[in-house]
Design a protein around this nucleic acid. Structure first.
Length: 134
DNA sequence: ATTCTTACA
DNA sequence: TGTAAGTA
């Protein structure tokens, strides 16, 4: 059983973050008076929470997953839901990627046009100087 | 000195 | 989430 400070250090998060996820109902550390005491289970849940966050899942989705983790010992329902969520996440990321690719193409086009404009102006200037040489 | 809650950014 | 304020 560890204090909030130690847990925060181990997970590399702030105490604020631990209280935040508790407030969202993702973890429920024991209490000694008002002071929070974290068990091995809370720490394990926090690791899952942090990973879910890294993968881009919402707090709500992570909570749903965690809730199922408790009821279904075999984790079958979890696996199914996870599979569905992964599919959604992959689709969302692919959609974002398409948008990014489109933006990149547009920027490259604009870049070429800008370069052409600059090059064209320089060429015109040189031609003008040549006329004076005549 | 530490932790907690609440509220605002 | 960070930070500040006022407690226990």
């Amino acid at each position: 059983m560890l204090g909030i400070q130690e847990v925060a250090r181990q997970l590399d998060v702030t105490m604020r973050t631990l209280r935040f996820y508790e407030d969202k109902g993702l973890i429920a550390p024991q209490r000694v008076g008002t002071t929070r005491i974290y068990s091995r289970r809370e720490i394990a849940r926090m690791r899952l929470i942090l990973r879910g966050k890294r993968l881009g899942f919402s707090i709500r989705e992570i909570k749903e997953f965690l809730d199922l983790y408790d009821v279904d010992p075999e984790h079958v329902a979890q696996a199914r839901q996870l599979l569905m969520k992964i599919g959604e996440r992959v689709s969302a990321l692919r959609k974002q990627k398409r948008a990014i690719d489109q933006t990149l193409e547009e920027l490259r086009l604009l870049e070429r046009q800008a370069l052409t404009l600059i090059d064209g102006a320089a060429t015109a200037r040189n031609d003008d100087e040549n006329k004076h040489d005549d």
